[in-house]
Simulated assay, not measured.
Amino acid sequence: MSDRRLRELGWYPELEPMLAEGRKRGLQAARVMAASRTFSTLLAGDGRQLKSRIPGRLHHLARRGGLLPVVGDWVLHRPGRPGREGVVDAVLPRKSAIVRQAPGRAVPQVICANVDTVLIVTGLDQDYNPRRIERYLALVGGSGAEAVVVLNKMELCRDLERCLNEVRNLGCPAVLPVSALRGEGLDALAPWLRKGMTLAMLGSSGAGKSTLANRLLGEERQVVGRLSERDGKGQHTTTQREMLVLPGGALLIDNPGMREIQLLQETTTLEEAFPDIVELGRACRFTDCRHHREPDCQVKEAVASGRLDEVRYQNFLKLQQELESREKIR
């Protein structure tokens, strides 16, 4: 298998020494397309999809801080004989990971790994919520990946320019209005769709992620759900995470809609979600100012003078308190 083929699947040079050692033991490198507790679907450099078992040894190591395969991971595996599955031997170090607190449990949940760009997809209908976008930006901020906000269903928006400015003011440099249903605005995604680049889509159910995935694939592969007429909310049409290979060679990780975005202190940064507040905070009297009750706080002064939106400031305090509370529980 040539290194060029691996690079086309997102391989990065830092993993070369581990692959060289693995080859001495008859192991091969592959990328995780889908994973359950016991099995994974791997994408080999020659394009084959291979079923590979996740052994109990890796679960045992995970209890001591080791890694279990998630979608997007690079692994070393031992190929199976004809008609039999192979075995995952090791999960290689990640260059990025999207991590949240597992729903209902105070433990980390790795959503996907080795992502270059996260597409935060939100619909310009009942789904539109700048406060939720801020939360997604905080989630992505500590991941090692770049965030791009995709405002889908622009055909439904009565004041597109207002929404664009509102989201740009959240601090995300890339905000793209599109209509996945009509295929409009998708050319703007081209810089992030180069061969070997990995993208992950995050967003609520009904935001149009599956419709967007189908547009990028050029075929109706992902099931598209209908919105509830009562509340406009979508159903989970994507039921498991999977990595898809796009026609141009980029790789797209489609994720089920997220009802909960619980943040973790060690994997979250508010700097990407609130760059304006971070910049104002540099002029505060105290270097460790929390912008709450401290005197001579430039952030509070900006709120009082109208230079900083009160709702945005309150959401910052809410997320900051949430992260600090979780840190105390651990």
Rank of each mutant, 00 (worst) to 15 (best):
L27P: 03
D187K: 04
P13W: 01
G225R: 06
K318I: 09
G26S: 10
F316N: 07
V107W: 00
P79V: 05
F286E: 14
P55E: 13
V87N: 00
G141E: 01
K300M: 15
M33R: 15
A304I: 11
E166Y: 00
Q262K: 09
G248Q: 15
R5G: 13
A34W: 00
V121M: 02
S143A: 10
R100P: 00
A273P: 04
L263G: 04
V278S: 12
M18N: 00
L58Y: 10
L264Q: 02
R53T: 12
A207P: 07
A138T: 05
G203F: 06
K195F: 00
R215E: 10
L119I: 01
G171N: 04
R31M: 12
G248V: 06
A113Q: 08
V299M: 08
G83S: 10
S96H: 02
V118F: 01
Q240D: 07
E272D: 09
R241M: 11
R293G: 02
Q298E: 09
P177G: 10
A30C: 10
Q265C: 01
E279N: 12
R94Y: 05
T267M: 03
L6Y: 13
G171E: 03
I54P: 06
D231P: 09
G72Y: 11
A283Y: 06
K233W: 14
K209E: 05
F286Y: 15
D187E: 15
G206N: 08
R282W: 04
L9C: 11
V149S: 06
T237F: 03
R84S: 13
L176W: 13
L251N: 12
D46I: 08
N165G: 15
A188I: 02
P17V: 13
N169Y: 09
R31H: 08
R131S: 14
V175D: 05
L199H: 01
L160I: 12
N129D: 15
R162I: 00
I54D: 02
G80N: 11
G249R: 04
Q101N: 01
E184L: 12
E294W: 09
R94D: 11
P191H: 04
E327A: 14
L216H: 12
R307S: 15
G232Y: 01
G232W: 02
P93A: 11
L42W: 09
E266R: 14
L212N: 10
E266H: 12
I253R: 00
R215A: 14
V149E: 07
I54S: 07
E14V: 08
L170W: 07
G248P: 04
S210L: 13
Q101G: 05
R312E: 05
G203A: 07
N114L: 05
A213V: 13
G22S: 06
Q314P: 04
K318V: 05
R162H: 13
I133C: 10
V178N: 05
D125S: 07
G144M: 01
L199M: 10
L160R: 13
